[in-house]
């Protein structure tokens, strides 16, 4: 096709060698990052000999899983969920109950807990489809409250305020995680896999459809994208990862109790994405790590931590809507921008 004759943009087509090479380089980096991350989490698990900090690191990895899942729901498809703690609780409690009352292996209990979270997500997501923006936030808020109240009040099932203790079982067929470094390694690998899966979703047609629905639902549906399927899928993915995080947490700390699963956990998971940046799964990763370590760093001024956290959230939303990730990208793109400006300057 002689498209060039028709080309509307004024400038003639420049040789495209440079961009292609850069794309190839970025592709290479984007593949090397996965083995590198696996090495990193294993090195952290073996290298941090302070148990306290290793536990914080494991907590961060668990939050990475929950946050990267909500990235699909909120970052990709634009649905605000204030009920992730509910899914986290379902994952944790299901795992705990199956291990302690039915003597399941931890791995099997975890899989079932994740499946149940996903099913509940499906059950909540399908009716919520009809709800736009604000309404979904309310529905998920209500869902989180219902779960939190059930945890406290349905003592026969959930153990009430005491929760479920002693969730200790081999992962599968006698293979056991005994020490904190064991758990750190296991959860670290799961976290890396979670980020990988979410990145795959983002870079597939599904991810594009989710973003399309977020940016313009009318245009997306006119281009043949079913809003309901895409939104429910994104919501269920968020629920599944929250459930996975909850189940891993239950196994790691060996108990679950209702205090953990309140609205502030849901807000924290959402805040991780906002602070880290909703435009990329790496934003969710950064946000999860930053907000897990922040209270530790601010320990000397502990009583101000939540105030600082609230103000930080307020400032990021108003003045840095792209979050930390976007700041990184801006800094990273400065040299390239400078070069481009210099080159166009030369030509004119």
């Amino acid at each position: 096709m002689n498209a060039s004759k028709l080309a509307m943009p004024q400038s003639p087509t420049l040789p495209t060698a440079a961009p292609v090479r850069r794309t190839r380089a970025t592709t290479l980096v984007s593949w090397l990052i996965w083995p590198a991350l696996l090495v990193l989490v294993i090195a952290l698990a073996q290298g941090i000999d302070n148990n306290y900090w290793l536990q914080i690191a494991v907590n961060a990895e668990i939050m990475v899983i929950a946050a990267v899942g909500l990235y699909v729901t909120f970052g990709l498809s634009g649905q605000v969920s204030l009920g992730q703690a509910g899914f986290y609780a379902i994952g944790g409690y299901t795992t705990g109950l199956l291990v302690t009352t039915l003597g399941f292996d931890f791995g099997l209990a975890l899989v079932l807990g994740v499946i149940l979270s996903g099913l509940v997500g499906l059950g909540l997501g399908i009716p919520s489809l009809r709800l736009r923006g604000n309404y979904l936030a309310l529905a998920t808020l209500g869902f989180g409250q219902v779960v939190a109240l059930i945890l406290v009040n349905w003592t026969w099932l959930t153990g009430g305020a005491n929760g479920i203790r002693n969730i200790v079982a081999p992962i599968v067929a006698g293979f056991e995680l005994k020490t904190v470094p064991d758990w750190a390694m296991f959860i670290g690998v799961v976290a890396v896999l979670s980020v990988f899966v979410v990145t795959r979703i983002k870079n597939s047609s599904y991810g594009r459809a989710m973003q399309a629905v977020r940016d313009s639902d009318v245009a997306a549906s006119s281009m043949g994208v079913s809003l309901s399927q895409v939104k429910v899928l994104a919501f269920v993915v968020g629920a599944i990862f929250a459930g996975l995080a909850g189940a891993l947490n239950a196994g790691f700390v060996t108990y679950v109790s209702p205090g953990t699963y309140d609205l502030s956990l849901s807000v924290t998971i959402l805040a991780m994405i906002v602070v880290g940046g909703a435009a990329s799964p790496w934003g969710a990763v950064i946000g999860a790590i930053v907000l897990t370590f922040l209270p530790e760093v601010l320990r000397p001024v502990q009583e101000y931590y939540l105030l600082i956290y609230g103000i930080l959230l307020l400032l990021v939303v108003a003045f840095a809507p792209g979050g930390i990730w976007n700041l990184f990208r801006l800094v990273g793109s400065l040299p390239a921008r400078f070069r481009t400006r210099a080159r166009t300057g030369d030509q004119s």
Binding site: Y304, G310, L313
Partner: peptide, 21 residues
Amino acid sequence: HASMIISTVAVGIVLTQAAQL
């Protein structure tokens, strides 16, 4: 609207913590 929702949640946190202090 997501920004607005998060922003009001943040105001809630700030007010609660300020009151606590």
